[in-house]
Simulated scan of single mutants.
Amino acid sequence: MDTVVLILAALVLAGRGIRLIYNARAEPRKRMLHAYSRQVGLALVPEIVPELSSRIYRRERAGIVGSMVGLVLGVATLLVTNGSQNPWNGLLVVVAMTVGSTVALIGNDSRSAFAPVAEAPRLARSASPGLGDYVTPLDRTFSLGLLGLATLGYIAVLGVIAINPDRVFDDVSVRTILWPAGLLLALATAASLVTWAAANALLGRGQPAGTYIQLAWSDAFRSTTLRSLVGIPGIIAAVSSCVLFLALSEAIHRPEPGSIGEILVGSFTIMGPVLIMVLVSWSVTSLRNRSTTHFLRRLWPETAVELDRRRRARGAAGDDQPDDRPDNQPRDRPDQGSRTRTPA
């Protein structure tokens, strides 16, 4: 294993551990709460701040621990497969951390969602929200699209290897090229089925809430969980394609100038970075306001309109601070006319 990779992994692991300890303090937990409030577009109401702070801290802690586990597993995989010669191994470790963090967040949120609740009067909706109320069509399409493209790419590569233009694969161990990417593609396919079942199970779970603001915050947490859940198959599929194309580009040694082999090496070398850029662009897009407040626009439209109005006013005034004063809560209270109170 490359010593540099081991040192960097150790430094990142130590940094994650320090952040885990630091976030246990009161001030960082307060900042996390305010940041999440701005992200989802909901005001902080004093009565539920302690509960929200505790829940957000647990989510942050789960994400850090999950990324640490992903880091250890990623480095261990490189050790076992002796993959230290690949210059893109750092990307694979980062993706392992991302998947580990996402899985841990989903596990934490799912545990909260399926925890037993006390018998008490609570609010109920006339119609249960669906996946489209929490996750934007772009996020869902992008994830399934990456899975579809990865599958088509894998089939195309199988065809290229079978044709073997200019005999460029005569000295290549095809098994060593195809099995890692094929395994990841199979995992992505399985993940799409598992996440579909998990999303339906989560959507079928009730959201105990005694007030409208509690119900809106419950929607916020559920939206974050489902957005992370939907993204897992796409992430794994993109990594599968990266592994496949980079392995192919390294497998063909010194092709003849102008030959089909040279064209294949160039295309395989380009496709890896392109997929990385697509993945990064998707991640950035998913964190934009229109994605994080999608649930407001679908389930609490009056609150979304008020949020947009206040943000435009703050932007014109140059004020980026969140409006989380207690006297602001009635304006931010989700539309009560469309909801009914029923016994638990």
Rank of each mutant, 00 (worst) to 15 (best):
274 V>Y: 03
172 V>K: 13
232 I>H: 01
20 L>R: 14
72 V>E: 03
79 L>W: 11
330 P>Y: 15
107 G>L: 15
147 L>Y: 00
83 G>P: 05
286 S>R: 10
44 L>G: 04
321 Q>L: 08
295 F>Y: 11
22 Y>N: 03
264 L>T: 09
185 L>S: 10
20 L>E: 08
327 D>R: 07
130 G>V: 05
95 V>T: 15
185 L>H: 10
334 P>D: 03
31 R>P: 00
301 P>E: 07
27 E>G: 13
237 A>I: 00
67 S>A: 15
19 R>P: 01
120 A>R: 09
97 M>A: 01
69 V>Q: 13
149 L>F: 12
85 Q>A: 06
124 A>T: 00
101 S>C: 06
253 H>L: 12
327 D>I: 04
236 I>L: 06
143 S>E: 10
336 Q>T: 14
275 L>W: 04
209 A>I: 13
98 T>V: 15
92 L>Y: 09
131 L>F: 07
85 Q>L: 04
120 A>N: 11
141 T>G: 14
302 E>S: 06
175 R>L: 10
3 T>F: 10
89 N>L: 09
122 R>A: 03
296 L>T: 04
287 L>K: 14
142 F>R: 04
179 W>P: 02
18 I>F: 04
192 S>W: 12
93 V>L: 14
327 D>C: 02
181 A>H: 08
235 I>E: 06
24 A>E: 11
87 P>S: 01
121 P>H: 13
80 V>F: 12
28 P>S: 05
339 R>Y: 03
292 T>S: 14
137 P>V: 02
188 A>G: 13
274 V>G: 09
135 V>M: 05
292 T>N: 04
169 F>L: 12
190 A>I: 11
11 L>W: 06
81 T>L: 12
251 A>S: 15
128 S>K: 11
280 V>K: 07
25 R>H: 11
179 W>Y: 11
121 P>N: 13
323 D>V: 00
257 P>S: 09
205 R>C: 08
206 G>C: 08
157 V>W: 07
124 A>C: 07
119 E>D: 15
250 E>S: 12
288 R>P: 00
342 T>S: 12
28 P>F: 08
32 M>D: 09
152 L>V: 14
254 R>F: 08
178 L>N: 04
36 Y>S: 02
168 V>E: 05
142 F>W: 13
328 N>V: 12
207 Q>W: 04
318 G>F: 09
92 L>M: 13
339 R>P: 01
321 Q>P: 01
332 D>S: 02
111 R>D: 14
117 V>Y: 14
95 V>Q: 07
321 Q>W: 11
295 F>A: 01
280 V>D: 10
35 A>C: 03
293 T>K: 08
299 L>D: 01
162 A>D: 12
219 D>F: 09
14 A>P: 11
161 I>Y: 03
126 S>Y: 12
208 P>I: 03
316 A>T: 12
327 D>A: 04
219 D>W: 07
339 R>C: 01
336 Q>P: 11
56 I>H: 06
244 L>C: 12
84 S>Q: 14
84 S>A: 15
25 R>I: 02
214 Q>F: 08
64 I>A: 06
117 V>H: 14
201 A>M: 13
88 W>D: 10
83 G>Q: 13
65 V>F: 06
